[in-house]
Design a protein around this nucleic acid. Structure first.
Lengths: 195, 195
DNA sequence: GTCTATACGCTGATAGAC
DNA sequence: GTCTATCAGCGTATAGAC
């Protein structure tokens, strides 16, 4: 299969589309923008994405979520068990290596703009890929007494919000994203109060 | 001034526009949506907002940010000084009483879609209204030794992300938004670890 | 102050040459 | 696989009647 070296042209289209969609959202990205990023004409996109804009968005989002599901689960399973801090750091490292995800924008802006059945599928994929793995490690940490009792779902959403904030608020900071994420995880675990 | 009772028709337009823009963002909201929310025709909007869509967006966003600046400063100044927890709770109460704000979406999606000069003004207004007051109370808490040394700017962004997450992730929770916000503030201050 | 009608540009999409 | 040409529909905006 000479075709699937690393990034055949179909992959290049998906990658460009994913970066733009994940940064600006569905409605703000025009097919023209994606074509420009690839150095081709808007109409030429239809050779690689015959389904049109909405289908392209669904495809890249599902691909992204599946990659995140695997990435998150690997990051967590490769960390020491019974160490929430290390698990969260690994999850943060994974998330920061990827294009940013804004779940809030996805839910409020992107989903209403596509077919309800598509929206439902993407929401489910996001829950599986991002929320579920985090909820699981929080629940496990509660069960073994490492942390006090908190709502795992709330904590998972909080973690994702915060990492996303790090990812995009980073430019102004004097330190790297990963350092910021580590600091933030420390605060979530130990708090801000003086010891 | 019989005109300015509470909500003359100009205000009603701004309010409807603000709610929609703040939820879905600039590009996802069509003037038609705002008109529908008001029960009028799209063209009739131009009587109240002769400047068109972009100007309307700038107007409502500046109005919103100015209101937030006052609301945040009041919430904080009416709290006990030297008590970061109470100040954060008051700030959260204020934020949760308002239409949601997604700074990340504003920066990545909305701003690129409007004139650069407009974008610059709105970003500055958001920094003044939301980030600055929070940075100030964090810095003060550090100075008086209430909390350990953290980056106030990072903490301010983190707080806003988290409250916004509470605001929109609330439906699934068994408790009120304010309770969730209080829990989250407790975690930021005390951490998740068992005492 | 709201309406209908309409102009206009932009965007998504199709057809067919190369 | 990419192009040019073109279309249909949508969204913004304007004109003018009521």
């Amino acid at each position: 299969m000479v075709q699937s070296i690393v990034s055949d042209s179909h992959e290049r289209v998906l990658n460009a589309a994913e970066r733009l969609f994940s940064e600006r959202g569905y409605t703000a990205v025009k097919l023209r923008d994606i074509a420009d990023a690839l150095g081709i004409r808007q109409a030429s996109l239809y050779h690689h994405a015959p389904g049109g804009k909405e289908q392209l968005f669904v495809d890249v989002t599902e691909r992204s979520m599946e990659r995140h599901r695997v990435g998150m689960e690997q990051a967590i399973s490769q960390s020491r068990p019974d160490d929430l801090r290390e698990q969260l750091r690994a999850a943060a490292r994974w998330l920061l290596s990827q294009p940013p995800i804004n779940l809030s924008r996805m839910n409020l802006s992107d989903m209403p703009a596509i077919a309800p059945s598509h929206a439902q599928r993407l929401k489910a994929a996001a829950a599986r890929a991002l929320l579920a793995p985090l909820e699981a490690i929080y629940q496990a940490a509660i069960d073994r007494g490492e942390i006090r009792s908190v709502y795992p779902h709330l904590m998972a959403g909080m973690f994702l919000s915060v990492i996303e904030g790090v990812q995009q608020g980073a430019p102004h900071a004097p330190v790297s994203k990963q350092e910021m994420a580590d600091d933030v995880i420390d605060i979530l675990l130990k708090g801000m109060y003086q010891r």
